[in-house]
Design a protein around this nucleic acid. Structure first.
Lengths: 232, 232
DNA sequence: ATACATAGTGTTATATCAATACAATTTTTA
DNA sequence: TAAAAATTGTATTGATATAACACTATGTAT
């Protein structure tokens, strides 16, 4: 039998890139590192994988420790394992991303590795520690694809949203493929019949209030069962 | 500073799912395990990642040790790290797939973990050791998507191929989405202008010989530069 | 010379996508 | 209280892409 002690082992982490949407802008949660290496630089949230913990569980734990949230959309993206990606020794990391409703987010105590957490616009999230620029780029690229092919964009919006808010979400993620035509967008999304009109309208806006909708998972499952494919 | 010894480490491996195409059938290379656990069962090729080896390098090494081939299409798919996926202890594995021209394949010495390697049709590749059924399924699903969105199918065919062979390749991979119309397929693939007509024909066939084509990477790059997207 | 096997080729109907402008509703301001 | 401002909500048409469909051409085998 194989004796694993004959083979090198490696430290293993997960990084969980947490996306949120606010003020018409796609944001990502970064933490300021509290120790060397890369002390005081911004980095993506992550942690070591515990011995008795599955990878998905570990990524969920990172999320929950940081935001208090659980049961959110989570997807594994890719594993980064360059020999020299970590200056202190070999660390292989499995990258995930999560989509959260930013309004439900409450900053919890940051963990021992971090000083403080902050939302930054995806455009400004550069010069991160380690190879985190590369990791973020891979996750963002995956998100762009995913959001067009699966109804996951709703995870970034409040439960009740307007069609204009939904359109702005797509524009923020997909730009510069941007410039979505309002009439065509509405026609397309409504034709799928995966949203329900809540017969409510916005309140407190200084213009004609828009109708509120919510995403209906059951309807989406029916849509799929009938052989249709979600695509924006 | 973080001392990695404070954290659990894990054995880690790469598994490289090697796809080939022969006799109108998509095949996958499996090896019979030469020791416990799962002795004498079929498994996907893989190996431990060496301490100074990047993940891609490691996957390429697995391929080369088994087939002698290098410089082939290789893609990371997903990392499998369930706590109990390996009966002997925790082993996290990064799954890759490779596409090879099966005619160029020469069986090299199998490594210490294996007795013999064999091509099996993707349909018959079940009841593999460990969680390899799941890994294969993930890789196959990825291949189905990849082959429709990127010109990688050519990697599975000889350098010179006929349009019918190419169509059969797509049918084998995409079935049951199968049933491709010959005229529409030809029109589509030729309209992209990424193939070159070699002005040669098949030899030794008992019917009208077909024209031979090859994939032209330069032309594909031009196609992309002009803003077009490959799609079958 | 004929049978056999597969290669090779166009047209039309249908569905999808892209582009376009203005009236309706609500709040704010003069 | 009338007008202005802001944004919602709605249909049509032309262009493009997709899907459906059958016969002739060219080589080998008998």
């Amino acid at each position: 039998m194989t004796n694993f002690d004959d083979y090198a082992k490696s430290a293993f982490t997960v990084d969980n890139i947490i996306f949120g949407f606010d003020e018409g802008d796609l944001k990502v949660l970064v933490i300021k590192r509290g120790e060397q290496p890369y002390e005081n630089q911004w980095a993506l949230p992550g942690n070591f994988v515990y011995p008795n913990e599955d990878l998905d569980t570990s990524a969920n734990r990172v999320l929950q420790e940081l935001t208090g949230l659980k049961d959110v959309y989570l997807e594994q993206v890719r594993t980064f394992g360059s020999v020299n990606r970590h200056p202190m020794g070999r660390v292989i990391t499995v990258a995930y991303f999560s989509l959260i409703k930013i309004k439900e987010y409450k900053l919890h105590g940051t963990d021992t590795l971090s000083q403080k957490a902050e939302w930054v616009s995806i455009k400004e999230a550069t010069n991160l520690a380690f190879d985190h620029d590369k990791i973020l780029e891979a996750c963002f690229r995956r998100l762009k694809r995913r959001v067009r092919m699966r109804p996951v964009g709703f995870q970034l919006l409040p439960r009740k949203f307007t069609l204009t808010e939904l359109q702005h979400l797509y524009e923020a993620i997909l730009e510069p493929t941007k410039v979505i035509d309002k009439r065509n967008f509405r026609k397309k999304i409504l034709s799928m019949k995966i949203l329900v009109d809540l017969n409510e309208t916005q309140e407190g806006v200084a213009h004609r209030p828009a109708k509120l909708y919510k995403f209906d998972k059951k309807k989406y499952e029916k849509f799929v069962a009938e052989g249709y494919i979600f695509e924006i």
